[in-house]
């Protein structure tokens, strides 16, 4: 989109503003040699924006997940401001605990389910306006500015990960805007990840001491998650659909 009016704004202050400064390469060291002479050294991590060299993902160890624990669900709910009220059929659920019993062997497991952040997300394919999209770093989001509330993504999602907002909302979190008539789902706590943090569910799980959830960059071979994935067997849900989910489960 053209922003003709911006041209008139060209009177940028003489000093480099914070944004341009950070854009030029993230962490930097500034050294003042003498009044008026400044040397800046750039290095470290690149810009905080979604980076295509990164793919954020989760590894969930089903054996470590306790059946009666829902700390991840509570953690997400508090962080992102969604609540399960009196209408379970229409209330949003970004993350839920599912209890599974193997029909053949009788083994019982419990695990959290959320948006699986597919590499080939069906919700993105079907969205007519492109509101459902995948960031360069693999996080699948809904752009609520262009979501028309058709719910086709909810029909297409194999994981039942999305919720439609059925009622007026108030007091949303400033970093997690959500409103009536649009679709939403787990954002992988994108507001935390962009600041270098980890998702609230992982943090909550760690706090219980279960340590069933691991967050990290799947593309970085030195990350804990990549090392764990390379060492132990794990599965993605509905692997038969070849969606290459960003959330994987071990010991399922």
């Amino acid at each position: 989109m053209k922003l003709p009016a911006l041209k008139t704004m060209a009177k940028v202050p003489d000093q480099i503003n914070r944004r341009d400064f950070l854009k030029s390469g993230g962490a930097a060291v500034t050294l003042t040699l003498a009044p008026g002479i400044t040397v800046m050294a750039f290095g470290g991590e690149a810009s905080a924006a979604a980076n295509p060299a990164t793919r954020w993902g989760l590894l969930i160890d089903v054996n470590k997940c306790a059946k009666d624990c829902d700390a991840c669900v509570t953690g997400c709910s508090v962080e992102n401001g969604w609540k399960m009220g009196g209408n379970p059929e229409t209330d949003a659920q970004w993350i839920r605990k599912v209890d599974l019993t193997n029909k053949q062997t009788g083994r019982e497991v419990s695990m959290p389910m959320m948006c699986q952040h597919c590499e080939e997300p069906p919700c993105v394919d079907v969205c007519p306006t492109g509101a459902s999209f995948k960031r360069a770093d693999g996080i699948v989001l809904v752009d609520k500015h262009t979501c028309i509330g058709c719910r086709y993504c909810m029909m297409a999602c194999p994981f039942k990960a999305r919720s439609f907002i059925h009622e007026d909302l108030e007091d949303q979190k400033s970093y997690a805007p959500r409103g009536k008539g649009t679709v939403e789902s787990c954002t992988l706590c994108v507001h935390r990840v962009d600041e270098g943090g980890i998702p609230a569910c992982v943090e909550a799980c760690d706090a219980t001491g279960h340590g069933a959830m691991m967050f990290g960059d799947l593309k970085d071979p030195t990350s804990d998650i990549a090392i764990a994935l390379a060492s132990y067997a794990s599965v993605g849900l509905r692997d038969d659909l070849r969606l290459n989910t960003g959330v994987r489960y071990s010991n399922l």
Binding site: P88, Q93, K97, V98, T101, K103, Q104, K160, R238
Partner: peptide, 11 residues
């Protein structure tokens, strides 16, 4: 979502 399993959840 989980072929071969019986599933229950709050959702």
């Amino acid at each position: 979502i989980f072929p071969g399993y019986d599933v229950t959840s709050a959702f």
